[in-house]
Design a protein around this nucleic acid. Structure first.
Length: 549
DNA sequence: CTATACGAAGAG
DNA sequence: CTCTTCGTATAG
């Protein structure tokens, strides 16, 4: 209890000075309930703010179990009445600042270095990264002043992100109101981690460090600080013996120090983690030998795997069911595509039959007259070369002109010759020169001439009765002169081929999909998968949802 | 938000 | 005193 500029309480005498003055700041003893002037007993208003329960000197002398209780659990300072107020305040502020700094530093060390990754263990600077190049020893300007990229903790960023969450969780356990106090609790928690590390020295199968963190510890902050000091001293003693290593230690942060103390330290090497093994572990390893490591891995598999398999089988696998559905769908589509291919084959056969029928037809020359009548009305220009054409030869010219032009310009024609399964090269054998033509097929018109149409060949194209339906009648004009149905057979074959190609590509795609799904299905429930992943039923009261139903 | 610059602390 | 490297301010 405190009294600031309290009201006059008559002639009552207070404090060690036994005066009735209560215009100054006063603090009351929570035991004898006597009031004392702050300046008489050396307690400032600032001090009083952090005091939870104050007991006067007289009460404490009478009853040594009484201790001044501070809000932030600081120990009572016995020099309260000895030093001057100014000094105390300054000292206190200094202490506070130092602690704050220490805590911040400890925290930063914790966050900046996991001490576990390869980067944290790396000793040498790469000399190639931007930070190395900036260093004086590598001839830099020392402007960036950062650690070598390869030595920067790989898990720093992610750890930093997680930090806030884990700290807030712990905050509720260990308490701490101000940021600095919170920082202190964080640090002490880290110390706990460290102490437990030591305690785990003889445990054979130790859980991971992060998991080892338990709830708050009972040790007071001061005790921890003492412990830290001891550690520090030990390190100082050791330093002259290992110049190279200690140099590294000095520049590295606390976490490394902790690990070093655990793993490589002098008197007590860590026990091998191998099952039943009592040998000391090798330096930088958890095991005394490779066999022990393998043994532990094996025993872990034997221990974990059966339960995982059981767990796996206890619930239906949604992924498996989905895959089965997709497989069924793919199968259906494959059948569909195959059916279409068969239909296209039939079409080809029909076309062949049609062509055969056309060959046996007798030629009728009268149709020519009709064509010539029409052709007087229109003049046509070639879409490729632009020359004026009479209608009679227009189609023929344009087809040839286009082929010629395309052969020289388009990659597609090259591609076409390739996918048709033929060589891209002419390969025409010249018996006189006794060698093959080395030109590209599409650029070699002299060896790849279209077969000449014999003058007595009939066109044979079915004549349409209307736009959509084809009649039984075939065109009986001479093939060479029929302008209406120029290249009809070729076009029809091309059309069917296009559809076939489409179906083949579809089949290919379906096959690929099926392969992927089968692969996924066979990899499911593998040993690795079962060991790495686990399905957790968070609500054991209700059965797991199944998509099958 | 990122890159850069720099004061400053810790260690040798 | 130097070296390393952290935290932070600031410019872009």
């Amino acid at each position: 209890m405190t009294m600031e500029h309290g009201s006059d309480a008559g002639e009552t005498l207070y404090c060690v000075c036994r005066s009735s003055d209560c215009e100054r700041f006063m603090i009351g003893c929570d035991h004898c309930e006597e009031w004392y002037h702050g300046d008489c007993i050396g307690v400032t208003q600032l001090d009083a703010r952090s005091i939870k329960r104050y007991y006067c000197d007289a009460c404490r002398a009478h009853n040594p179990s009484l201790e001044i209780q501070y809000k932030n659990k600081k120990k009572e300072r016995h020099t309260v009445s000895e030093s001057s107020e100014q000094d105390k305040v300054e000292k206190k502020h200094k202490e506070y600042r130092t602690k704050l700094r220490e805590n911040m530093l400890a925290k930063s060390r914790m966050t900046r270095k996991c001490g576990e990754c390869s980067a944290c263990h790396r000793i040498e600077d790469c000399g190639r990264c931007d930070f190395c190049k900036d260093m004086k020893k590598f001839g830099g300007t020392n402007k960036l002043r950062q650690k070598c990229r390869l030595r920067q903790c790989t898990s720093y960023v992610s750890r930093h992100k997680h930090m806030g969450l884990s700290l807030s969780e712990k905050g509720s356990v260990t308490g701490g109101d101000t940021p600095s106090e919170r920082a202190m609790t964080d640090f002490s928690d880290f110390e706990d981690d460290f102490d437990e590390e030591e305690a785990y020295e003889n445990v054979k199968v130790a859980p991971k460090k992060r998991e080892r963190r338990t709830s708050s510890s009972e040790a007071s902050p001061k005790k921890k600080k003492e412990k830290k000091k001891v550690k520090h001293k030990e390190k100082l003693k050791k330093s002259p013996e290992k110049p190279q290593k200690s140099r590294q230690k000095s520049s590295s942060r606390r976490r490394v120090e902790v690990d070093d103390a655990l793993e490589t330290d002098d008197d007590m090497p860590r026990q091998c983690y191998g099952p039943g093994c009592v040998e000391p572990a090798k330096v930088g390893s958890k095991y005394c030998s490779d066999e022990c490591g393998m043994k532990l891995a094996k025993s872990r598999i034997y221990e974990i795997l059966p339960s995982r398999i059981q767990q796996w089988q206890s619930s239906p696998c949604v992924g498996e069911e989905n895959n089965k559905k997709i497989l069924e769908m793919l199968r259906q589509e494959t059948l569909d595509a195959r059916l279409k291919l068969r239909q296209l084959d039939m079409k080809i056969q029909e076309l062949d039959a049609l062509v055969d029928r056309g060959k046996n037809l007798t030629m009728i020359a009268e149709q020519e007259g009709l064509d010539q009548e029409e052709d007087t009305e229109l003049s046509v220009y070639c879409v490729t070369c632009g020359t004026e054409l009479n209608q009679k030869g227009a189609l023929r010219h344009m087809e040839k002109c286009y082929l010629k032009f395309e052969a020289q310009t388009s990659f597609w024609s090259l591609y076409k010759t390739r996918i048709e399964g033929n060589s891209m090269f002419c390969d025409f054998y010249n018996p006189q020169q006794k060698m093959y033509c080395k030109r590209l097929k599409v650029l070699c018109p002299e060896h790849t001439k279209e077969p000449k149409v014999s003058p007595d060949a009939v066109c044979g194209c079915p004549i349409a009765t209307d736009i959509f339906t084809e009649g039984e009648n075939l065109c009986r004009a001479p093939k060479k002169k029929c302008v209406k149905h120029f290249c009809w057979e070729k076009l029809r074959r091309a059309e069917i081929d296009m559809h076939r190609l489409r179906q083949w590509m579809k089949l290919d795609d379906l096959f690929e999909q099926e392969r992927n799904i089968r692969m996924a299905m066979s990899n499911r429930m593998g040993v690795l998968g079962l060991m790495l992943h686990q399905t957790v039923d968070h609500d054991p009261m209700t059965p797991m949802k199944s998509t099958a139903s």
